[in-house]
């Protein structure tokens, strides 16, 4: 977080630079089945973010050392394409990507019925094609849809969104400038039906009251996005009846 308090990102009427009010999320659209050769796939267009997820598996877990005797492992790879950001990203190992891969796997493992596939792995490939803050959230959301599309059994679907604070005002779903210059960032991953959290990170500075507002903003975004996930899966799985 930059915490550059002098960058004006919300005016006196509560309108943000991109025209949204404090509680609004960016425009979202979701499509499933977009990678024909994968077992399951999805894309999430969230603001300017464009994130794609493909699922392959279950398959035998190789190398041996990653195998678990009693369950499947989720082999998640989150990656940003070289052309996804204004400054090109050199392909190769990236610590941030590795961390995001890990927390994404842990979020999804909380809903996937992994005990049904001992010694297997389920590959989840998340590729950020275009980035605009909130890529890890869009990635988790896309991965949920891709897993469902691949017929992987899950107890729930996970929706992820990040709220934060800019110029002292708590807002929902930070965009790029808000993420760069704001004072706090709270990404969460929530199960659509149970409301339970499977993913949680935070950095910045939020008072107890501000924290609650940010939390609530995230929670309010879950249902609308969940509807879009269901609609995406219906459109590509003949459920239009």
């Amino acid at each position: 977080m930059g915490g550059y308090g002098d960058v004006q990102m919300i005016d006196d009427n509560g309108i943000r630079v991109d025209g949204r009010t404090a509680g609004e999320i960016r425009p979202v659209s979701i499509n499933a089945g977009i990678i024909p050769v994968a077992d399951g796939s999805a894309e999430v267009i969230w603001g300017t973010n464009h994130v794609i997820a493909a699922v392959y598996g279950p398959m035998e877990a190789h190398p041996r050392k990653i195998q678990k005797q009693d369950r499947a492992v989720l082999d998640v790879r989150y990656n940003m394409a070289p052309f996804s950001t204004t400054d090109r990203i050199r392909p190769g190992f990236n610590r941030r990507s590795r961390e995001i891969s890990k927390v994404t796997a842990e979020a999804l493992e909380s809903v996937v019925l992994t005990e049904l596939y001992p010694r297997s792995k389920i590959r989840v490939e998340i590729e950020v094609i275009t980035a605009e803050a909130g890529t890890r959230c869009a990635g988790i959301t896309a991965a949920s849809v891709a897993l469902a599309d691949a017929g992987i059994p899950m107890t729930d679907m996970v929706i992820s969104v990040a709220s934060g604070k800019i110029n002292g005002v708590v807002v929902c779903d930070l965009n790029k400038e808000e993420d760069n210059y704001g004072e706090a960032d709270l990404p969460m991953g929530v199960c659509a039906n149970s409301g339970e959290l499977v993913f949680l990170q935070m950095d910045g500075d939020l008072s107890p009251e501000e924290f609650q507002i940010a939390w609530d903003y995230n929670m309010e975004a879950i249902a609308p996005v969940h509807e879009m996930m269901i609609d995406a899966l219906k459109r590509s799985n003949g459920g239009d009846e």
Binding site: A148, M154, D156, M157
Partner: peptide, 9 residues
């Protein structure tokens, strides 16, 4: 009858 998604009640 209809399409359901994981987690549907």
């Amino acid at each position: 009858t209809r399409l359901v998604t994981p987690g549907a009640l």
